[in-house]
Nucleic acid binder design. Structure first.
Lengths: 164, 164
DNA sequence: CGGATGAATGTTATAGTGTTGCATTATCAT
DNA sequence: ATGATAATGCAACACTATAACATTCATCCG
């Protein structure tokens, strides 16, 4: 029904393993530990290019034989977020792997409402616009949430129109 | 402790009543009904320039003698949102009055993490940047969520620095 | 007026999301 | 090894939101 891969085609296996390697390196250099649980959760998230809910992750962990309860998942997600390895998408109550974990940044997302794929944007233009508008209000920005819902190019072709 | 008024000073009573009048007019012209309950909820929201949770609203309604349960509040909020009279702030699970109900638009918000006041921006610059970046990805935008958390000018003066 | 109709609200129950607090286990440096 | 610290297990709970059905309210038409 919906495509498990992002609409921008790529080698998914390579994409996951390179993300895992990058995560490992990041944790080493920061003196934190990418434990088995954390790696497991990160990999789950990366295997899906669409956002996963905390309870989705929980269910998979339990299928995999680990006895996990909600706090386990949320703590793990907190860690991964603090490392910049995953982002939380507030409008979906869900989590997605960060494509640029090395750079500290807020996430800017294009969310397809048809196939649920999410594309993370570098979004320098948006960031600049935000800081410009904030500056006009003398507001100092800590973090910005930008979540753009709509239709990705692939789905627009498949479902070209909804007009009556 | 925290200031119940927005950091941009204004005549709050007038601001609330003009919002209520505008809401009344909007509903009349669209053939919908601004019932007592709906007006009550909208006024509650407007009286606070900070976002209110659905259960905050519920509590006040019950204090005011109405026997309300969650669906009552959520349905009312759905109506007010569909009229563009209030916005939901996803990152806070809370609701705030819309300052431009006549224009259809997404909300762009500056959220002060210290005093909880929220300022809604017209944000043409941000909107343009979003559409430009989306267009580059051939993504068609339906709705965008922009929620900028940080410190408002008033709070920056009060709590000038958190650096050690 | 009075009944029919549809919109709005009341009511009960439940689903979904996230947190607190404390017990236990694993890891690491001495 | 041992003691300190980080990570995970576990139980209970708080907060946010929706489903399904019953009742009340407003309006329109005869």
């Amino acid at each position: 029904m919906t495509n498990p891969l992002p609409y921008r085609p790529h080698n998914h296996h390579a994409c996951v393993s390179s993300a895992m390697e990058e995560a490992q390196a990041l944790c080493q250099s920061s003196g934190t530990r990418l434990t088995r649980l954390r790696a497991q959760v990160l990999e789950l998230i990366w295997q899906s290019h669409r956002p996963l809910g905390a309870y989705d992750i929980l269910a998979v962990l339990n299928e995999q034989g680990r006895k996990a309860a909600p706090p386990t998942v949320y703590r793990t997600l907190d860690f991964l977020q603090s490392m910049g390895l995953v982002h939380r998408i507030a409008s979906l109550n869900a989590f997605i792997g960060c494509t640029q974990p090395s750079h500290s940044h807020s996430g800017y997302f294009l969310i397809c409402e048809h196939c649920q794929n999410v594309l993370e944007l570098p979004a320098d233009g948006i960031r600049q616009a935000i800081h410009r508008e904030a500056a006009e209000q003398a507001f100092s920005v800590r973090e910005s949430t930008v979540e753009i819902a709509g239709t990705c190019p692939a789905c627009r072709q498949t479902q070209p129109s909804k007009s009556p």
